[in-house]
């Protein structure tokens, strides 16, 4: 069987072709993703919908180059990560690519409790050896937390903490924002507020891939990819 090749479109933010991911647990093989072929164009807002264990997080991890595929091809931000199941970009290169092009948002906010909101937002700049305090402040104002700059996570609500995490994901001016169940830990009202923020960011041209099992949320997003048992069953 020949490996699928890229339908080369250099303008795509991310593109997978016949991509698969197998985890090995002892002798057992877990097929987390099978034959995924999907592309994300600049400015797209895509929802990856599926039940728990469908492979949503695995897909986001691969798109965020936190992990590498075991088969197929993957290209992110114009760089080939893997081709014909072989990794083409070493770990150091993947770290740099992630740092420069990708923003991550998790269900848990993962804010550092000893840092203020603005310091948490600036954290990724530490690894990029940059400092841009005024942009961090601008982002916090953008997510509606201009009055919370020097507050610590313990002094904030869940929704506020997730907004800080969103600002942190944006500090490196990413091309692709990956959000894994970003509203999983907040109430419905807060969820709607955060979703509106994603909408605004997307309207500004940011490419967003949001994974969720919340059908109600997915219904509000233009493009929905249905994942089930590691396969795209609809919307590729």
């Amino acid at each position: 069987m020949t490996e699928p090749a890229f339908d080369v479109q250099l303008s795509l933010v991310a593109e997978a072709a016949g991509m698969g991911k197998i985890y090995r647990r002892g002798a057992e093989e877990i097929h987390a993703l099978r034959e995924i072929s999907v592309a994300f164009a600049p400015g797209e807002f895509t929802c990856v919908l599926g039940p728990s264990g469908a492979g949503k997080t695995t897909l986001l991890n691969l798109l965020g180059v936190m992990d590498v595929p075991t088969s197929g091809a993957l290209r992110v931000a114009g760089t080939t990560i893997a081709d014909a199941g072989r990794v083409r970009l070493a770990e150091g290169g993947r770290d740099r690519l992630r740092r420069e092009n990708i923003g991550f948002i998790f269900t848990e906010f993962f804010l550092l409790p000893t840092l203020t909101a603005v310091e948490n937002v600036q954290l990724p700049l530490l690894w990029a050896e940059k400092d841009d305090h005024s942009y961090a402040v601008e982002l916090l104002e953008r997510v509606g937390l201009g009055h919370r700059l020097t507050h610590r996570p313990t002094e904030m609500s869940g929704g506020e903490m997730q907004r800080v995490a969103i600002a942190r994901a944006l500090i490196n001016r990413p091309r692709l924002l990956l959000a894994d169940e970003p509203t999983g830990n907040v109430d419905t009202k807060t969820r709607d507020g955060i979703f509106d923020l994603f909408r605004e960011l997307n309207a500004d041209g940011l490419t967003i891939v949001l994974a969720t099992h919340d059908g109600e949320l997915a219904a509000r997003i233009d493009r929905v990819i249905h994942l089930r048992e590691g396969r795209i069953v609809e919307g590729a």
Binding site: M66, F106, F110, L112, L123, W127, R168
Partner: peptide, 12 residues
């Protein structure tokens, strides 16, 4: 978890 997050946001 926090170290994992740091790596996810760009720490080598």
């Amino acid at each position: 978890k926090e170290i994992g997050m740091m790596k996810a946001i760009g720490a080598s």
